[in-house]
Amino acid sequence: MIITRVFNWLTDGDNWKDSHLNTGILTQLEAHIRFTGIALAVAILIALPLGMLIGHTGRGTWLVSAANAVRALPTVGVLVLLTVIIAPHFHGRTDTGYLIPTEIVLVLLAVPPILANTYAGIDNVSPAVRDAAAGMGMTGPQVLFQVELPCSLPLIFSGLRSATLQVIATATIASYVPLGGLGRFIYDGLAQQDYPQMIGGGVLVAALALTTDLIFATIQRYAVSRGITGRFPRGRPAVASEVQSAVLTGPEVSHA
C-alpha cells in the first residue's frame, strides 16, 4: 500500500534529521518558511502602503489593474526565465543565483492580491463614514489609520492569506530550479522514482499551507473589530444589514 509507505516515510525520524547524504525535513521546512517569509515581508512592505495610498487618494488605480494583469503570467515560466537570466551571474555561489529569481517571482505573485485587496478594502469604506471622519476634524492620516485601515482589515487579511498560499505553493516549485525547501522531496522523489518521498513531500506542503492559513485566520479573528465581522456576543443579531460577510478567502488565489 502506497499510503502506508508514505506514512512510514513521514514518521521515520531519520528523514527529519540532516545526514551526510540527505537534507532532512526540518531543514527544508525551515528553508521553505524562510523563502516564504522574506517574499511576504517584501510584498507587504510594497503593496500595503501603496494600496492604502491609492485607496485613500483614489489616484493611481491603474497600478492595481496592472498588478492584476501579472496574474495571467505562467509562474513556472517566469521562474525559469528569471533563473536562466540571473543564475549565471552568480556562478559558483549557486544558491544566491537561484534564490534571487525565486524571491522576485514570489514577490511578484504576492503583491497583486495584497495590493488589490488593500485598495478595495479602503475604497469600500462607506462614503458616509469617511465624510463623518473628515467632518469631525480628523486629518488625512488620522482618517486613513484610525478609520479606513481598521475598516478594511477583513479584505486586507483575505489578500494576505491569498498571497501567502500562493507564495507557499510557488516556493515548492522553486525546488525545480533547483532550490531547497519542501519541494525538494517532490522533485527528488520524482527523479529517483521514490514515490513515498514524493507524495510525503506533497503532504508536508499541504500541511504547511493549511497551518499557515489557520494561524492567519486566528490572528484575523483577534485583529478585526467585532463591529465589522458581525460576531456579537449572546447571539444578539445585527439589526442593520450593513454588516457584510467579511471573510473572503479562496477565490482570488491562483495556484501556480
Binding site: 499510503i3 516549485i173 519541494g183 514515490y195 514524493m198 513531500g201 506533497g202 506542503v205 479562496g250 488565489v253
Partner: peptide, 24 residues
Amino acid sequence: TGLLYTIPSIALFVMIPPILGLSS
C-alpha cells in the same frame, strides 16, 4: 471547499494518485 483551495497545486497533484489508488 476553502480548505481544498488552500492546498498547493503541486501537492494536490502528487497526493491524488494514492488517494484514488492510481499508479503514481
